[in-house]
Nucleic acid binder design. Structure first.
Lengths: 156, 156
DNA sequence: CTAATGTTTATGGTATATCATGGGAATTTA
DNA sequence: TAAATTCCCATGATATACCATAAACATTAG
């Protein structure tokens, strides 16, 4: 199979007036092993953009084919939404992509974008929204796992 | 899969003004069997940095990859938290990595770092914090000793 | 048992390559 | 033809690779 690739880390980049934004170099070197483009779509659950190599969506599609209809109806609807929304974005020689108005609006991004690694995929956030979301997630995770408490004052 | 590797021992190294620090040679020789880089992230439970080979996170990603979990909220949160924080660190020919400000701050490390082996992964501590933590752990273990039974067949 | 020697490891400094980003030219679309 | 989009080059900032020195360690000879 292909090399291991994981999108990691959180990177802040600028978005210029044309909607151009640099894909973090780490992300690029991952994608380049496969192609020179990524797929982006509006997150179904959050005010952010999701991105991934096309391979991931292919896998999603083939998994849908082989799963039982009985259980997959709801997911079938969701995949329709994703595939209906997804679009390929090629990055140029300097490593930038041009995000569409639709995506930027959904994520409420104007001049700054935060790239957040998610393993096989990544997300693009408005800085303030991401700050809130990260805080929410940390609180949520700590609540669900009382044993995971940080020592007082040790929070990031 | 891969050979089994164990990070062991406790090693103290200096951190220079740029955040550069030598990965202990024992650790390096372990990692080198696979690649020339490791992954580091802020510990969820302690004021320290955790490190491991990328393979460890690979497995986590593989689990998330299955389409059945593609839309799960909890996994969504977890991947954001873990992969959003983790970062790959390549060490150069002299065996050093450059830790980021975010990681150093979380672990309260300024000019000295303590590497603590933890088996499949390792931790990086501020010296004073590690001294306290080690004392705490020892006290804890002694207190709980009567109930420290291994599952049958799970002995080292 | 001690001293000398060679080898690996840690650390400091500097040069180089890479990356993010802005501006503008060329090309396409309406 | 006007507007928008894509492509290409320039630049400053940053991070990485490289070289040199110093310290720790192990080995071997005396």
């Amino acid at each position: 199979m292909s090399k291991t690739f994981l999108f990691m880390d959180t990177v802040v980049n600028k978005v210029d007036s044309k909607g151009r934004v640099s894909l973090p170099s780490d992300y690029r070197s991952i994608v380049k092993e496969l192609s020179t483009e990524i797929v982006c779509y509006r997150s179904l659950t959050s005010p952010c953009i999701e991105g991934c190599p096309e391979e991931l969506l292919e896998k999603l599609a083939s998994d849908m084919e082989s799963s039982l209809d009985f259980f997959s109806q709801e997911q079938d609807d969701l995949t329709n939404l994703i595939f209906g929304d997804a679009k390929r974005f090629a990055f140029d020689s300097t490593g930038r992509i041009v995000l569409t108005e639709k995506l930027l609006k959904h994520a409420e991004i104007t001049d700054t974008a935060v790239f957040v690694g998610k393993g096989r995929k990544f997300q693009i956030w408005n800085p303030e929204n991401w700050a809130k979301e990260e805080a929410r997630i940390r609180a949520e995770v700590l609540k669900k796992r009382p044993s995971l408490k940080l020592p007082a004052g040790a929070q990031a």
